[in-house]
Design a protein around this nucleic acid. Structure first.
Length: 918
RNA sequence: GGGCGUUUAGCUCAGCUGGUAGAGCACAAGCCUUACAAGCUUGGGGUCACAGGUUCGAUCCCUGUAGCGCCCACCA
């Protein structure tokens, strides 16, 4: 294959098109991402949070995988043997419903296919579309080990699931039982507590007060409910035993409306005297709390609904098959007619919804499998107490622990077909249960008497094993021995319970080790209004549109698909800003933008504009600076840099380089990506491009001079080191530029730079003074409306020895940077020159004929005003007795010096004004 | 109801262990200067949400209030 570079240096702008894909192929051809278990390097390993097979890369993935790739590339350059395991998750319910939808569209009924055929259909789907997202990860630049691709339903991982299930079952940590569970009537399956969401403050609804006639009396008991459709399932009325209103009624019966059943009035503490009427209808088969009351009082459990949320055969016959919400309306109407409806009141009521389908969940009594969590959580907490897991940002640590300390049993069986079928067999006659990894002998010998559990396991059950199942567990593989536990897990915090906590628990349980040493929770990706990006809101930005560009019709698509209420406004806004579409900025710009916004806060706000403003701008700047540097590098020879020959600005920029090498590395290691990027940008853009490059330009007039050779050598060092520093963050463009510089070997295999010239604070401060002199000169000219192109003559008076020596070694730099004819040191102001006052200098500019005296006086007065404001607050501080008494002496000293400096400047400016006026 | 986060320039956000605030964008003025006008130079702009407290000194620490966001629990 053709090696890089793939671009033309003549181009004035960086174009990622045609570069990135080629570079990625190049990396693969160099086996750049292959781990080597035999090496003696230290290890760094990461498992990817496996995206859903049905998934398409979204901004959250882009952010998270940019983070992981930056970490992996950095560690590789730092001399680690790196394994990054990629893969996908079978995502049970969501994949099954996606495929079902597609089959529906083709006119094929999913359920009538039967289990085997339906599952085959999903496999077909998986095999043709399942790897798309992995290709998209490559677009991002992810340096995964592609020999390690795993899928949660691979043979190996499936066997790990069965082994885990059996071990937990044998240890008594998995049990089966008839309990009330969250039920999704759309997907017709049980859900774990974590898969149910409730809206803050509830949803609009009603509270009905309904009269139950007390047996053998003409009296009624009024009961409040938000769910009258469950009335046919009532098996008791509970009142608080201490409630004087109802004490005497305990033990009597009431009539269940619309039926001829009688149910008892019972006493239970759960009934709150203060709430509602104080009477609670108890429906054990349709409410978790009622279920508990039912257990305490041995009440019958009457399930009145079918799997799909229609009324079942335990409800009165005429209502069978009617939807629960329709029945709610009917029963209210009936009650009204029977004069049993006491009152109706509008009210926000808590409503649980299934995360996937959005349907209002039902509570359903059914046989399910559960994992007993407390013992697992306890073991995990012990490891946490030993400090075996570091969480970043730290604040999530307590959230994590709190969940582990309060976790409840986990319902793991799902009534769907796509997933790991539960390895349990039931004897049809004796109801004996066998759990095993493979079909047990008894079953094989007598297949007609046994039946395997129809259910599959919750997707998160296999995800919980991911860090080690991907490495071959339960076999004792070399990967497992070498790379487990992994170094870091980077993930979104919304799956902290679903996934992170469960991996920790199973990892500790099966391997006695927390599966990762560190967890990093990245921020949530939001739109420019601060709303989380989601498909249903249509406010998502597709990372591929950023990388590859998109026309406006393509950009519209997510909005049109979602049809949100503000669709028109959103479309208008899009057209206003991107009528021509969004032009490709490439993966590097995407990564730089995302990581530069990635602070320790909980969210990042994104808009299309941001990618142009931050990433695109930056890659363009890097491209152009590189073009310039490369043109200088090819203009002659270089040599070893000898510290003795260096000028102030050389020492300054090399010191700043050292700071950047260190700063970016430290930022990456502490997951402060925005800090790393800010550090690099200010070095590269401000220090290197705006100051150092500008200063060196004139050194290349004679390309063979010693001066040119020295500057070229320094440019080379800074340029090459910069590419290396930036490579983990922006891998493509740096690799491309590295190739343009003539390197035969890939940048990604280079070592992260070592510091060869140390940062020196004194040098740094000295150069800052030079910058300040230049800035002052530019400022005076700009203020007086003088062209920056007209070279002028300047004299400078240093006010002390230190200043004198500083200016003597910087005269040339100031002349170049400020475009001067000459700069001479003097002890008096040359007549006709105008003055500008600095803390340790006075500058005299020859602006003969070009100045307006009054404007000049104004300029100086303005400067005095500023200084006086500053001075007055400082002197107020010094006049405070307590400050003098209690503040540390060095602070007092510094403050005094500040004031003296300011006062002296003011005096000198006043002098200038006086001279101007005369 | 419990917990967490957040409030800093017009906008988006930095600000590490307390010593009177920074960047990018936007805005204004000037510049096609030996890479970059998608650029460069210079400038204007802030009671650091509010009220108390600790301190010589608070954007920073403590308490409270309010707005915004998130998580957990859930009273029929």
């Amino acid at each position: 294959m053709k090696k890089p570079p793939y671009s033309n240096l003549e181009d004035k702008h960086y174009s990622p098109i045609n570069i990135e894909d080629n570079i990625y192929e190049y990396w693969l051809s160099q086996a750049a991402f292959k781990p080597n278990p035999d090496s003696d390097k230290p290890r760094f390993s990461v498992v990817i949070p496996p995206p859903n097979v049905t998934g398409r890369l979204h901004m959250g993935h882009a952010l998270n995988n940019s983070v992981q790739d930056t970490l992996c590339r950095y560690k590789r350059m730092k001399g680690f043997d790196v394994l990054w395991v990629p893969g996908t998750d079978h995502a049970g319910i969501s994949t099954q419903s996606v495929v079902k939808k597609h089959l529906d569209a083709e006119g094929i009924d999913f359920y009538s296919l039967g289990r085997e055929a339906a599952v085959n259909k999903i496999w077909e789907w998986k095999n043709s579309y399942g790897d798309q997202i992995l290709g998209q990860l490559k677009k991002l630049g992810c340096s995964c080990s592609w020999d390690h691709v795993r899928f949660t339903m691979d043979e190996g991982l499936s066997s790990a699931v069965k082994v885990a299930f059996k071990k937990l079952y044998d240890d008594g940590l998995i049990y089966r039982g008839k309990y009330i569970v969250n039920w999704c009537p759309v997907d017709k399956t049980a859900l774990s507590d974590d898969e149910v969401t409730t809206k803050e403050g509830g949803e609009p609804g009603f509270i009905w007060q309904i009269k139950y006639k007390i047996e053998n009396t003409n009296e009624y008991l009024t009961v409040a409910t938000t769910r009258p459709e469950t009335i046919p399932g009532d098996t008791a009325i509970a009142v608080n035993p201490e409630d004087p209103r109802y004490k005497k009624l305990i033990g009597l019966n009431v009539h269940v409306p619309l039926t001829d059943r009688l149910i008892p009035i019972i006493a239970d503490d759960y009934a709150d005297k203060e709430f509602g009427t104080g009477c609670l209808k108890v429906t054990p088969a349709h409410d978790p709390n009622d279920f508990q009351i039912g257990v305490r009082h041995n009440l019958p459990q009457i399930n009145v609904m079918n799997e799909d949320g229609t009324m079942g055969d335990q409800a009165p016959a005429q209502y069978h098959g009617i939807d629960r919400f329709k029945f709610r309306e009917i029963i209210v109407e009936e009650l009204k007619n029977l004069n049993l409806l006491h009152s109706v009141e509008e009210r926000m009521t808590p409503v649980g919804r299934a995360q996937r389908s959005g349907a209002v969940i039902e509570y359903r009594l059914s046989d399910q499998w559960f994992v007993q969590m407390k013992p697992l959580a306890k073991k995990a907490l012990l490891k946490l107490d030993q400090g075996d897991l570091n969480i970043f940002p730290e604040r999530w640590d307590s959230v994590f622990r709190h969940w582990l300390e309060n976790t409840r049993d986990w319902c793991i069986s799902r009534q769907i077909w796509w997933g790991h079928q539960i390895p349990a067999w039931y004897n049809k006659t004796t109801n004996e249960i066998l759990v095993d990894i493979d079909t047990p002998e008894e079953v094989k010998n007598n297949p007609d008497s046994w039946v395997q559990d129809e259910d599959v396991l919750d997707t998160w059950f296999s995800s919980a094993l991911w860090p080690y199942s991907t490495m071959g567990w339960p076999e004792d593989t070399i990967d497992l021995r070498t790379y487990y536990p992994t170094s870091v897990l980077s993930t979104a915090k919304d799956i902290i319970y679903f996934w992170v906590a469960r991996m920790v628990m199973t990892g500790v349980n099966f391997l006695d080790k927390v599966p990762f040493k560190e967890v990093y929770f990245h921020p949530v990706v939001c739109d420019h209004k601060g709303e989380t990006m989601s498909k249903s809101k249509g406010n998502g930005i597709d990372p591929l549109h950023i990388i590859e560009g998109a026309d406006v019709v393509t950009l519209e698509r997510p909005i049109r698909d979602a049809r949100p209420p503000q669709m028109e406004t959103m479309l208008q806004e899009l057209h206003k800003n991107y009528a021509e579409g969004f032009s490709a900025v490439g993966a590097d710009a995407l990564r730089v933008t995302l990581l530069s916004l990635n602070s320790q806060s909980q969210q990042v706000q994104l808009s299309l504009k941001k990618f142009d403003e931050v990433g695109k701008k930056f890659t363009d700047k890097l491209w152009n600076a590189s073009r310039f540097v490369l043109s200088k590098l090819t203009s002659g020879e270089t040599k070893e840099i000898n510290e003795e020959n260096l000028s102030l600005e050389d020492k300054w920029i090399l010191g700043r380089l050292a700071n950047t090498i260190e700063g970016v590395g430290a930022a990456i290691e502490s997951y402060k990506f925005h800090e790393g990027i800010a550090c690099f940008m200010s070095f590269f853009w401000d220090d290197f491009c705006d100051w150092y490059l500008e200063l060196t330009k004139s050194s290349f007039k004679d390309a063979t001079s010693n001066e040119a050779i020295l500057k070229r050598s320094i440019l080379k060092k800074i340029f090459f080191d910069s590419l290396k520093i930036l490579h983990p963050i922006a891998p493509f463009i740096t690799e491309e530029l590295w190739a343009h510089a003539g390197h035969a070997n890939p940048l990604c295999k280079e070592a992260y730079p070592e510091i060869s010239f140390k940062f020196n604070k004194e040098t740094d401060e000295q150069f800052l003074v030079v910058r300040e002199i230049v800035r002052t000169l530019r400022n005076v000219r700009a203020d007086l409306g003088m062209s920056a192109h007209k070279a002028i003559t300047v004299a400078i008076k240093p006010l002390n020895e230190e200043a004198k020596s500083l200016i003597n070694q910087s005269i040339e730099s100031v002349i170049r940077a400020a475009n001067l004819i000459s700069l001479s040191t003097v002890t008096e102001r040359p007549s006709s020159f105008i003055s500008s006052v600095m803390p340790n200098f006075e500058l005299y500019l020859d602006l003969t004929g070009a100045i307006d005296i009054n404007a000049e006086i104004e300029r100086n007065k303005k400067q005095i005003q500023k200084l006086e404001k500053e001075g007055s607050s400082i002197s107020a501080k010094l006049n405070n007795e307590n400050f003098i008494k209690k503040a540390p002496s060095e602070v007092i000293e510094e403050t005094k010096n500040n004031l003296l400096g300011i006062e002296s400047q003011i005096n000198r400016i006043n002098q200038v004004i006086k001279e101007l006026s005369s």
